[in-house]
Amino acid sequence: MLNVTDLNVYYGAIHALKGISFNLQEGEIVTLIGANGAGKSTLLNTISGILHAKVGTVEYLGEIISDEPAQAIVQKGIVHVPEGRKIFAKMTVLENLEMGAYTVNDRQLIQDKMEAMFERFPVLRDRKRQLGGTLSGGEQQMLAMARGLMPNPKLLLLDEPSMGLAPVLVEQIFDIIQDINHHGTSVLLVEQNAHMALSIADRAYVLETGKIVLEGHANEVMNNPMVISAYLGG
């Protein structure tokens, strides 16, 4: 479904991604783990068209998308839920969801999707007229994911959805990610919480300073001594 080949991304002189190659098959949850500054967010931003690679390609459903602008990539069915949730603070929960559905033109479809989101995230229904900025961290993460699901993505890119959340909420978020995946959305999950991410993922890649240093099935990666000592606190 997604084929990334030899991706090189720079911030001015900083070489942030140094030849990344990986793939994701339809229906999978693939997780990218790595320490702060490894280049995980840079990678997601490049896939979603916020950044553009100097060298290398992103291929999605047989089409090269690495030169497309972000709005075109959303239209193709890839939605990126950014790090830090990035809720529109001065807009209501409803308006945030409407912005998520910006590329959808059928009003009825938007209405149905919104109803589905309220079923999945009941807290949002109670707060639908509240401003996004007044929600708690956990509620904002729910809203960010609901907003991302509004256009019915085929592939969801999640950047550290568990960041800064209490353990109970983290469990809940990961359950939801699994559920989303069971309903047919492929997921590329970036996490620092390696343990949780590996427990729900099919496959994993480990990123270090802009390079992939390890890849494999999630349980292989989970049992790798290097991963245990570096990311699982063993």
């Binding site: 068209g49 529109f88 912005m99």
Partner: peptide
Amino acid sequence: KAMRAVASDKKTAALMGID
């Protein structure tokens, strides 16, 4: 609404598919 979204955060607005 798109204008407000762009005013508050251009990058996230682009992630919504807003030009």
